[in-house]
């Protein structure tokens, strides 16, 4: 089995994986980072979004081997100690989550948007979230949270 090595949330991590092992499996099962969720098998829900080299990626559609050598950030790596990341704080403040299952993917995806656009319109947020499903919130408060979080980030994470 090939060995993969990547920097996950700032720490170098390696593991032996099969060629077909998905990044999300590596994160959840090998590294115990269960904050990244799996909601589907057709790359439709976005519950699994993480950052690979700073860009949001559906970790269920990426092989662990493809992330070899990469910088990976998961929801567990976003906060600074006990200080929530501004996007996490915005989700809390605006009630952008209910059951919390879609939340890690939503937040990771939103941070990527905010890195590119510090003041997205409602329309831009709704279009950006095309790849993320939420059954609980009706998206209303997620949209508000993403806009507020992007502003709070001020164009950088």
């Amino acid at each position: 089995m090939p060995t993969v090595t990547m920097t996950v949330n700032g720490m170098e991590r390696s593991g032996n994986v099969e060629g077909r092992t998905l990044l999300v499996e590596f994160l959840r099962e090998h590294l115990g980072l269960t904050g990244t969720h799996v909601g589907c098998d057709t790359s439709q829900c976005g519950a699994c979004v993480v950052h690979v080299n700073g860009t949001s990626v559906k970790s269920c559609t990426c092989l662990a081997a493809q992330a070899d050598g990469a910088e990976v950030t998961t929801i567990e790596g976003l906060a600074n100690g006990s200080d929530l990341h501004p996007m996490q704080e915005a989700f809390r403040e605006h009630h952008g989550l209910q059951c919390g299952f879609c939340t890690p993917g939503m937040v990771m995806s939103a941070v990527d948007l905010a890195n590119q656009n510090s003041d997205p319109s409602e329309h831009e947020v709704r279009e950006w979230l095309e790849g993320n499903l939420c059954r609980c919130t009706g998206y209303h408060n997620i949209v508000k949270a993403v806009q507020a979080g992007a502003k709070a980030m001020g164009g950088g994470s």
Binding site: T34, G35, H37, R92, C99, G100, P104
Partner: peptide, 17 residues
């Protein structure tokens, strides 16, 4: 603001899987 949010927002929720 909700008590449950911090764990869900930081990936520390504990779902069955």
């Amino acid at each position: 603001k909700r008590k449950e949010d911090t764990r869900f927002l930081t990936g520390r929720g504990r779902y069955t899987d």
